[in-house]
Simulated scan of single mutants.
Amino acid sequence: MTPAAPPPLPSPYDRWFPGSPLDGTYGYDRDALLAVVPAAEPDGFAELWRSWYARAREVPSDVVVEAAGGARRSTHDVSVVIYTADGGLRLRAWVAVPVGARPRVGVVHSHGYGGRDAPTFERVPHDAAVIFPVARGLGALNAGVGAPDTSSRHVLHGIEAVETYAVGRSAVDLWHAGTALLDLLARQDGTLGNLPLYFVGTSFGGGIGALAVPWDDRFVGATLEVPTFGQHDLRLTMPCTGSGEAVRHHVADHPEAREVLAFHDASVAATHLRVPTRVECAAWDTHVPPPGQFAVANGVGRAAGANLELAIHTAGHAEYPGQSREQAAAFAATRAHIARTLPT
């Protein structure tokens, strides 16, 4: 018997992505996406993350500038630093310090599962000091350090236990990155060690940011772009072209891993946010299914004090007409959001 042809893609995606193996809407319209609820919170979720944060704050960063005099921009001087992260790993990051301006905020700027090849400044105000941490195991700065260097292997690394899962360890590493930035600034001027922090992260970075930010009172705001790791109950039913596919297949063979994922669900963590949070979700995305993204945004919407600012992009993890316009607006919106979250 000839297999039934897949249903046609919805407009305008049928014209934009005619060769797509999946419908990146997953059958959800805007109203359905806004109705997706966060996953159920497992017992001990908040206590576990708070304990991890308390433990992380006791670790000295021992940050040093490994390569000074890196690429200089018109607004920032860039260097490579190395600092102590979770489990004693020494991780590298780029740090950018404003040129001719006293920093008003420190930005921890994470990245997607492809790693990071260089700093990106589109969302960074001219008066922000920034650390661009590269997740354990990933390129360009930390390949082979503490985790595998491909997304399909990284997302499964340590999944045998809650304490060892690479997603959680990468979120914990963000706290260490913030400490490293503030310690470095404090050496220049002791008062800069008390700068407020703001988080920016996309995809993988958005997911681990949602996991990390709620427990760290140094952060005054966040932007989470197309965040992953949200609502595993749904994600595990949805084939995708991103790292979630490796997780889906793994859990099918190892159902006990579902208990580990429950403590690494970004939609659950989002309900604990207490700072203004901007979430950018995509209506179409075969890489990170939109229902998972919106579960994170809707979790923020439920969180007292988080003041959700939601932006809906036409598509995610894809090139499409109007993308540059949407991105430019999003970049400007993050810079404006940072300015609004800073103490007066």
Rank of each mutant, 00 (worst) to 15 (best):
F45K: 02
D189R: 07
V78W: 07
A118Q: 12
V97C: 09
F331A: 15
V63R: 06
H337R: 02
R55T: 15
A46M: 00
L192G: 07
N194H: 15
I312E: 15
V172E: 11
F294I: 02
A333H: 11
G299F: 02
D216A: 11
A166H: 03
V81Q: 11
L156A: 01
F204E: 07
A329H: 10
W16H: 09
E58C: 10
V155Q: 01
A96Y: 10
P10I: 08
D29I: 03
G207K: 01
S152Y: 13
M1N: 14
A329C: 04
T75S: 15
A295W: 07
P60T: 09
R258P: 09
A32P: 00
R15H: 10
E122P: 04
G301W: 03
A54C: 05
L48N: 08
D23A: 03
S74R: 14
R102W: 02
G190E: 15
P98K: 09
V155W: 09
A85C: 10
R258H: 13
S110F: 04
T286W: 08
A252N: 10
L141Y: 05
V162P: 02
V226S: 09
V64I: 14
A210F: 08
V108C: 02
H264F: 12
T179M: 11
G206P: 06
Q231C: 14
A54W: 04
P38L: 06
V37F: 00
G178D: 01
W215G: 04
R102Y: 04
T314R: 15
R325V: 15
R57Y: 01
S61H: 08
R116T: 05
H287S: 13
G201A: 01
D183E: 12
H76N: 08
R90Q: 14
V124P: 04
P6S: 07
G230Y: 12
G44S: 02
S152N: 12
H264G: 07
G244V: 09
P103F: 07
S74A: 15
D23K: 06
A330F: 12
H250W: 13
G27H: 03
R325T: 15
G292R: 06
P289Y: 05
T191V: 14
H313N: 13
A135M: 06
G87H: 10
A266Q: 09
V81R: 13
R55A: 15
G301H: 03
D86W: 14
F121T: 04
H232M: 14
R15F: 05
L310A: 00
G305F: 02
V268Q: 11
D149C: 12
V37H: 08
L184R: 06
A295F: 10
V162E: 05
L261Q: 12
R73D: 11
A68V: 07
L273K: 04
T75H: 12
A166R: 01
A252S: 13
E256S: 12
R335Q: 09
A303M: 07
A54I: 05
E58M: 10
S324M: 13
D149T: 14
T341E: 06
D117Q: 14
